[in-house]
Amino acid sequence: MAIHLGGNQYGKAEVRLVRVDRGAERHAVTDLNVTTTLAGDLEATHLTGDNSGVLPTDTQKNTVYAFAREGVGEIEAFGLRLARHFVDTTPTITRARVRLEQYRWERLTVDGQPAHHSFARAAGTRTATVAYDGSTAWVVSGVADLTLLNTTGSEFHGFHRDRFTTLPETDDRILATAVSASWRHGGDPADRADAAWAESFRQAHRHLLEAFADTHSLSLQQTLHAMGERVLRHREELVEVRLALPNKHHFLVDLEPFGLDNPGEVFFAADRPYGLIEGTVLRDGAPDPGLAWW
């Protein structure tokens, strides 16, 4: 029976990094969780324990911190710097992927003025995944744990029924979700400036929110498509949007046993089980780099 080594990769998971830029007028905080993943000619370490081609995961961690000393900037650019470094300086490594989560902090104000060094954690986590294979780089930006809610403007009816179906139809419900969205950049990201990455994120984020608010939803699937479509229509640099939308169910509480009515005002917010709606919206003709970047 023939046996061989299949696909493999390794790296350092969840390197926590906080950088404080100490400007004279105000401080700025960059709060990251960074995961590096490397692949290449690594048969020897698996088959014989020869580690001569292995860049230790501890070295990968140290590299993240050392690069941060030079400044982080936008997370997409920081990920590109790291990915290129690992491939270009380690002979056995042919592909690097860097995943970044940025925990966002908003500056506090005192008497209407921005505080010098005080912050509050902002909603939603900014994300980026960068992959580089020695010649081509792919960049995916996104946001996770962005909790949204519409108190009306959502329906769900006309669905298939079988003998196990008990869900009533509704023409007015609360629609709530915790958005995880990722969008892939087209073209060559090599020379994109920090300002371009920042503006792309701000605008994609804005269009996601506006689509959620503007869409009279007949299903969460319809809302998902509307969110992805709006981002692509307004941001030419993006070619694909992937979304995962858990349905955060809100059930109307029956107050009749207490002699009370409930005209859509008192709800029970259930945390599980929940529907999970996932989908991809693509620009026609968008190149597909495969799963190496995802």
Rank of each mutant, 00 (worst) to 15 (best):
G73W: 12
I75L: 11
G290K: 06
F159I: 11
L149H: 04
T48I: 01
R163F: 14
P273I: 05
D191F: 02
D21R: 12
V29E: 04
T37W: 12
G264C: 05
A66R: 11
G285P: 01
F156I: 09
H160I: 05
A178S: 15
L220H: 01
D188C: 04
P246N: 10
A211D: 04
S217P: 05
S217H: 08
T165S: 11
F268S: 12
D41W: 02
N8Q: 15
D50L: 01
E240V: 02
F268E: 15
A13M: 08
S180E: 12
E14P: 00
R206H: 15
S217E: 05
V130T: 02
D171S: 13
D58E: 06
R161D: 00
G259Q: 08
T45R: 07
G142N: 06
V64M: 08
L32C: 05
D58N: 12
L108E: 02
G134D: 07
V15T: 13
H46Y: 14
R202K: 06
V98N: 05
W105E: 05
L245G: 04
S180W: 01
H216D: 15
N62P: 06
T35A: 04
G275V: 12
V231L: 14
A181F: 02
H249T: 14
S135M: 07
H116P: 00
E25W: 08
L282V: 08
V110I: 11
T45I: 07
E229L: 15
A39S: 13
A213H: 12
G187H: 03
T215V: 10
E70Q: 11
A198R: 15
T215S: 07
P168S: 14
A68S: 12
V143P: 06
E76Q: 09
A123Q: 10
L232Q: 03
D214M: 07
P257F: 12
P189Q: 09
A137I: 02
P91N: 03
A269E: 11
R121T: 05
H225E: 15
P289M: 04
R81P: 04
D284L: 09
V231A: 10
D288K: 00
G124F: 00
L255F: 13
E25M: 13
L209K: 07
M227H: 05
T36C: 10
P168Y: 09
A195M: 06
L238I: 14
S154Q: 10
L108V: 00
L42K: 03
G275Q: 09
G71Q: 13
L208Q: 08
G264K: 04
V140I: 10
A123N: 04
H185A: 05
L208S: 03
H160C: 07
L55V: 07
R161S: 14
Y103G: 00
H185W: 11
A83C: 07
V110W: 03
Q203A: 14
T37I: 12
Y274H: 14
D88A: 14
L80D: 01
D214I: 02
R104T: 02
V72S: 02
T48D: 10
T35K: 06
F119K: 02
G285Y: 08
R192C: 13
I93C: 08
S135C: 06
V179F: 07
D254Q: 06
E14H: 09
I93H: 00
